[in-house]
Amino acid sequence: KSAVKALFDYKAQREDELTFTKSAIIQNVEKQDGGWWRGDYGGKKQLWFPSNYVEEMI
């Protein structure tokens, strides 16, 4: 599983989504079709976030 870095702040709209700030590192990313991926951040595990808010880390 990979890690991504947030390009923008994102505030969860639902309880199954992540809230994060710009430059946050989201771990254990599971990529899905449809523009939403799952990952771990801030003590939350495998919640959804919009993939267009992040960049992949190499």
Rank of each mutant, 00 (worst) to 15 (best):
D33L: 11
I58Q: 13
Y53V: 11
W36Q: 05
M57G: 08
V4Q: 05
G42Y: 06
G39R: 00
T21M: 12
V54I: 05
E30K: 13
D40N: 05
Q32V: 15
I26M: 02
K45W: 10
A3R: 13
W48E: 03
A24I: 06
K31H: 05
D9T: 07
Y41M: 05
E17Q: 12
V29D: 03
I26H: 01
F20Y: 02
S23K: 08
L18H: 06
A24D: 09
R14W: 08
F8V: 10
Y10I: 01
Q46S: 10
L47E: 04
I25F: 07
I26R: 02
Q27M: 14
V4G: 05
A6E: 03
G43Q: 08
P50S: 03
D33C: 15
E56R: 05
G39L: 01
Q13R: 11
D40S: 03
T19K: 01
F49M: 02
I26E: 01
A6F: 01
G42I: 04
S2M: 15
R38M: 09
I26P: 00
Q32W: 14
D33K: 10
I26C: 04
K11D: 13
F49P: 03
K5M: 11
T21R: 12
G42F: 06
W48H: 05
Y10S: 01
S23E: 13
D9P: 10
K5T: 10
Q13A: 11
Y10A: 00
L7M: 11
G42R: 09
R38F: 03
L7F: 06
D40M: 01
D16L: 07
S51D: 05
I58M: 13
Q27W: 14
K1F: 12
G35R: 08
G35M: 10
R14N: 14
K31M: 11
P50T: 03
S2E: 10
A6N: 02
P50K: 05
D9C: 11
K45Q: 12
Y53I: 12
G35Q: 09
E56D: 13
K1M: 13
K31R: 12
E30Y: 13
P50Q: 04
I58W: 14
E55A: 11
K44D: 10
G43H: 08
V54Y: 01
F20K: 00
W37H: 00
W36K: 05
I25Q: 04
D40L: 00
D40C: 06
K31P: 06
S51M: 11
Q46E: 06
S23Q: 10
G39P: 00
D33R: 10
A12N: 04
E55P: 00
A6L: 03
K45T: 14
A6Q: 01
D33E: 14
P50H: 05
L47N: 08
L47H: 14
R38N: 03
W36L: 04
Y41P: 01
N52A: 14
V4K: 03
D16A: 06
K22S: 09
F8C: 15
Q27A: 10
Y10T: 03
Y53M: 12
K11W: 13
K45L: 14
K5W: 06
F20I: 03
Q46W: 06
R14E: 08
I58L: 13
E17F: 05
M57L: 15
F8H: 11
N28K: 05
K11Q: 14
R38S: 04
L7Y: 04
Q13N: 10
Q32K: 13
F8N: 09
Q13V: 11
K1R: 14
I26Y: 02
D9W: 06
K45R: 12
Q13F: 07
Q32Y: 15
E55C: 13
